[in-house]
Design a binder for these strands. Structure first.
Lengths: 326, 326
DNA sequence: AACTGTTACGCGTGACGTAATGATG
DNA sequence: CATCATTACGTCACGCGTAACAGTT
């Protein structure tokens, strides 16, 4: 039994049960993979792979379990490496954050700047995606933390830290008829074509549900995953939209022919969460980053949430104060 | 990075940070251990052990974390081996059960017999101890399952499955004055010297608390960890005792000059739990054994409890029906 | 043919054990 | 001097790569 064997098994599974590709990905020879996996099977006295002819078509039942174990072990080895890095140089390393366009563009920019100034040695990278993709990245250990509203699929092994409370406003072109209204209603909005967030975003779904509750059918002409795209469409007169309040920058967006209207009485706030893999070691600066995101989440509380068995209280989510640091 | 290095690290920690003893325990040379640990430290670029002169006196902070990781990895490797064994021969293997004397002697005997008949290839072994020791065995992976009332110390990573509801009876010598009473009271009992379970047993503590609630001070002359010892003392006239109802065998114990009296109105039932290490793979026959213990705990429910984040409902504990299969 | 996985074989690294050295109470 | 840990060194095994082979599409 051998670490390589576990690495090989995991990689083979990752590459669609193709030894050649796994070998390629690991920069090693293909017979080596074959041999080591056979040795592992021999030691366990169990076939892990289903071989048909000269193909591998599936994992056996014990193979599935072995794979799960291998993945856990490999994750722990990653953690061990991080422990070393943390001790060797706490200020140097990398941090991968998976989040949505809107969070990255409007919330993270000032935070990222402060973080970079504080930790110039940390290689910070952002990955964008929809909530499902974000969860997947965090789950797989390809991102250290995720930041987005709750996704449509349940995922185990992820801790869910309430972070921001997101109020929506309504975005209209300047000079739009709605601007004369003192207090918007669902019915007012439904009179105009609407642009929403993609259904993979909780924000998008929540808005639609709030209309459904009023028994009103809004006319959705387009859905997008990018707040800037939505703005551009609204500016071009294609319709009105809802956006997080902090995604509207009065200073700049007014120059683009846009105006925003309060809508807190129409839409309940969404919550965006910080997502962490329970079994992934976090570098010290990752805790610092989280603390910069929300003062609520200092290191001991994060660790408690990671260890804890029930999700933390929703009320820990804080309102976002608009700050355009760019 | 290497499995051996992790094994060595764990063993060194286990042997009081003594390389020589670790080498001895692992049937290998002492310089080998030294070398490998240094290699690991070199790779992580961090000292894991605190060396003073030519002694190792402590683990560094990263060393502590590395040790924890190493232990998790080693546990997973154990699991991997078990997966192999399970697949290779589901009916052959070993099963270690840690429990108290009373459970072993009065509850487990018939179950063990049935289990042995069903799985003659399984090497079943029982380890006795008080609840704290039992938890420790399960926690360390030295026992596959524990069966006892709740211990005095909290332990993480253990799942706690309510199993039995234990009613107590009062044990007196035959012809004892108390036998004339129709319905016992705390005050009646306090008039006689009493023999209790050791304080490390929840049972022992619970009985004393029930007296405390009545503001009555029983006169405890002796505490023991063994139901048979208690019986012997009672038979010899040293005092009266409380015992689980099923620990009194009318057929046999009456011959020994003992009698039992109902006391369900005096003492609330205790709950005994099945304890499982959340991260330890259970062989198929282990689930069978658990099912024999209590029909309530079939495999899917056990697995759910292992994965679940909150302890299962207390009401899953069932009354024990006395059955003396020996 | 192109692509798969397995078997055969030779090479070199690296883990191990023995022996020697160093350090400490 | 007994008891540790570390350094030095020779040996052997094992993991790896190349090459040849075998089974599918």
């Amino acid at each position: 039994m051998n670490l390589q064997q576990l690495r090989y098994l995991a990689e083979v599974a990752d590459r669609g049960l193709n030894l050649s590709r796994a070998a390629q990905a690991l920069h090693t020879s293909q017979p080596g993979i074959s041999k080591q996996i056979r040795l592992l099977e021999e030691e366990l006295r169990t076939e892990l792979l289903v071989r048909e002819g000269n193909r591998i078509t599936a994992l056996t039942a014990p193979g599935e379990q072995a794979l799960a174990i291998a993945q856990r072990v490999l994750r722990e080895l990653d953690n061990l490496r991080r422990v070393g890095e943390q001790a060797a140089d706490p200020e140097r390393g990398s941090l991968v954050i998976a989040t949505t366009h809107a969070h990255a563009r409007y919330l993270l920019i000032p935070i990222v700047q402060r973080f970079q100034a504080r930790f110039p040695g940390v290689n910070l990278s952002l990955r964008q995606g929809n909530p499902d993709q974000i969860m997947q990245l965090v789950q797989a250990g390809q991102a250290d933390l995720g930041l987005c509203t709750a996704p449509t699929v349940a995922t185990p092994d992820l801790a869910q830290l309430p972070c921001y409370r997101i109020w929506r406003c309504v975005l209209v072109p300047q000079g739009h008829a709605l601007l004369k209204k003192k207090r918007l209603t669902h019915r007012d909005l439904a009179a105009y074509p609407m642009i929403t967030l993609d259904a993979s975003f909780a924000g998008g779904v929540a808005i639609l549900e709030s209309f459904a509750k009023e028994q009103i059918q809004p006319q959705v002409v387009l859905s997008a995953t990018d707040a800037d795209v939505i703005k551009a469409f609204v500016a071009s007169g294609m319709g009105i939209a809802t956006l997080p309040e902090w995604a509207f920058d009065a200073r700049r967006d007014q120059g683009q022919g846009l105006a925003s209207m309060k809508a807190r009485h129409l839409f309940r706030p969404a919550t965006s969460y910080l997502w962490l893999q329970r079994h992934q070691y976090l570098r010290g600066y990752a805790y610092e980053f989280i603390h910069m995101l929300s003062k609520v989440w200092h290191q001991p509380r994060v660790q408690q949430a990671l260890a804890g068995r029930e999700p933390p209280d929703e009320s820990l989510a804080v309102d976002v104060q608009p700050s355009f640091g760019d």
